[in-house]
């Protein structure tokens, strides 16, 4: 009886990582657009150097939650929030936190590839140059490293000065990942990164995600359950702005605890 009540009030408590392996800690987080609630009383912990997937039906708030993690909502003046989000123990909404620095540490890749209208090289170097002057050699090194990390180097090394818009969709998405890696983030947020791509590009991006988790904490939003099952270590299921269930991916997909979760992952829900 007590267990059930606790579940309803804070379902995320089911996996409680110890603080030294927690990268992001979300506690009692709620968010509204004007009068419209989008997220309510959400609590969960994201483990370091693992892939955590957020799944759920469209409009369940999974992207909203992701954008809250690097304060992209700051631009929208209608948004109000409550609760806390901590990155490595520090409240990201604390007044002493510089939002630009937070966003450097928590990188984000969007649904549709959004390379800037400049060369491939300049795209990757964009974030670096914001951080201050740096010797050209060093920038070159980091650009090469970032492109290699995102498995794009071999395809573009001969045309670094070409426009980024000349790349294919899958290449553009990997370029955007490289661009984000170049500024040295600790967390990488991926908002349905493969939804606009063809199957082969999707596989490449998924492989990239698996490789990156050795050095990064990854949070992946996806509506594709197979994808979540393939790449993530932990999965959170959200519905109507609430966290329904959060468990290791194997457990959630093979043995969901709640009927709502089961209905969703077996496709019995509209």
């Amino acid at each position: 009886m007590t267990v059930m009540q606790e579940t309803r009030s804070s379902p995320g408590a089911f996996i409680d990582f110890s603080p030294d392996v927690t990268s992001l800690e979300i506690r009692g987080f709620g968010l509204r657009y004007g009068d419209k609630p989008a997220l309510a009383n959400l609590s969960l912990r994201v483990p370091r150097h693992r892939v955590t997937a957020f799944i759920g039906p469209s409009g369940c708030g999974k992207s909203t939650l992701l954008r809250a993690l690097n304060r992209l909502h700051d631009l929208n003046e209608d948004v109000t929030w409550e609760g806390t989000i901590r990155l490595e123990g520090q409240d990201i909404h604390a007044p002493e936190v510089a939002v630009a620095e937070l966003r450097r540490r928590v990188g984000m890749v969007f649904q549709a590839p959004n390379p800037f209208p400049m060369s491939i090289y300049d795209n990757v170097a964009f974030g670096l140059r914001l951080q201050g002057r740096m010797p050209k050699r060093r920038v070159d090194d980091i650009v090469e490293w970032a492109l290699r990390s995102s498995a794009l180097w071999d395809e573009v090394k001969d045309r670094l000065r070409a426009s980024a818009w000349s790349l294919s969709g899958g290449q553009q998405q990997r370029l955007v990942i490289a661009r984000t890696l170049a500024v040295g983030p600790e967390v990488l947020l991926l908002d349905e990164p493969a939804s606009a791509l063809d199957p082969i590009s999707t596989l490449k991006v998924e492989e990239l995600i698996r490789n990156l988790k050795s050095s990064l904490t990854l949070v992946l939003v996806t509506h594709n359950m197979q994808q979540a099952a393939r790449v993530s270590d932990y999965t959170a299921f959200l519905q109507d702005g609430e966290l329904v269930e959060y468990a290791p991916t194997d457990t959630l997909f093979t043995n969901p605890r709640l009927a709502r979760t089961e209905n969703y992952i077996t496709g019995r829900m509209a």
């Binding site: 690097n70 992209l72 631009l75 939002v99 630009a100 620095e101 966003r103 450097r104 540490r105 990188g107 984000m108 890749v109 969007f110 549709a112 959004n114 390379p115 800037f116 209208p117 964009f126 974030g127 914001l130 951080q131 955007v176 661009r179 984000t180 500024v183």
Partner: peptide
């Protein structure tokens, strides 16, 4: 200018001023 360009710049740690001068105004 698509919103995604602005968000892309911000997500890389650009301040609003940097986003405006380096991405939005050139475009």
């Amino acid at each position: 200018i698509p919103e995604s360009q602005r968000e892309g710049a911000l997500a890389l740690g650009a301040t609003r001023f940097e986003m405006l001068t380096r991405i939005v105004l050139p475009m």
